[in-house]
């Protein structure tokens, strides 16, 4: 065996050892995912990465499917759907959006909120994180609040400078009102009005961020 061949052999062995070890470093790599599903999911993740979409939520979706014992095709469909929603959310929110905002926006879209409304909300709020408002939006829409009423309610809260805690309180109040029999739209509109009126002196985020 020549020197160069020996070096190539050793290098190849080292490379294969490295590749195998690297694969083992992801603690979530389990034996439960069948190969066709794995290949399909990885292809979606690669495409998302190339588009600049955060891929960690896609991995989480895959593991959620595994944890819930879903079959391969269902996992692939869920990951593909999430990738699509995140791609639309990413475009609607713009480059300043964080991974958490994109993730929460995708959840709101899943509930039925149009991406364009989320984009408008992001423009209104500027540098404020909208992870909580989007999460609350998804929740109240899933509880029966019509999309228009829900968007207006959250928009008025964000516009009035409500903090995340106040927006969470709003969600809790709307939920309890609905559980007690209130019409969802009326609950959201009334609670948003009450919350916004409590903060007359707070500066609008949009005004605050102006130079």
């Amino acid at each position: 065996m020549s020197k160069s061949k020996t070096r190539s052999f050793v290098v190849a062995a080292l490379m294969s050892a490295y590749v195998v070890s690297a694969g083992a470093q992801d603690p979530r790599t389990g034996p439960k995912l069948d190969n066709p599903t794995k290949v399909a999911v990885l292809a979606i993740i690669d495409t998302a990465r190339a588009q600049g979409i955060p891929v960690e939520p896609l991995m989480e979706k895959m593991y959620e499917g595994l944890g819930k014992g879903a079959e391969g095709p269902k996992i692939v469909a869920a990951v593909r759907n999430l990738a699509l929603e995140m791609s639309i959310a990413h475009s609607a929110l713009g480059a300043v959006a964080t991974t958490d905002e994109i993730k929460a926006a995708a959840s709101a879209m899943h509930a039925g909120v149009p991406a364009v409304e989320l984009g408008k909300l992001k423009k209104q709020s500027r540098l404020r994180s909208l992870a909580t408002p989007f999460t609350v939006l998804a929740d109240i829409v899933s509880r029966g609040v019509p999309v228009g009423s829900a968007v207006n309610a959250v928009k008025s809260l964000v516009g009035a400078g409500a903090k995340d805690k106040e927006i969470n309180d709003f969600q809790r109040n709307v939920k309890e009102d609905i559980q007690q029999g209130a019409p969802p739209a009326a609950a959201a509109e009334t609670r948003a009005k009450v919350s916004s009126e409590k903060k007359p002196d707070k500066p609008d985020e949009m005004e605050k961020d102006k130079f």
């Binding site: 869920a78 999430l82 929460a104």
Partner: peptide, 26 residues
Amino acid sequence: QWVADPTAPRSSSDDFGMPSSALVVE
């Protein structure tokens, strides 16, 4: 038995037919 947290916001994306909740950790 998988159950959502009754005190937390619902997560809308229950693709696998089991409920889950949303959590925002600041």
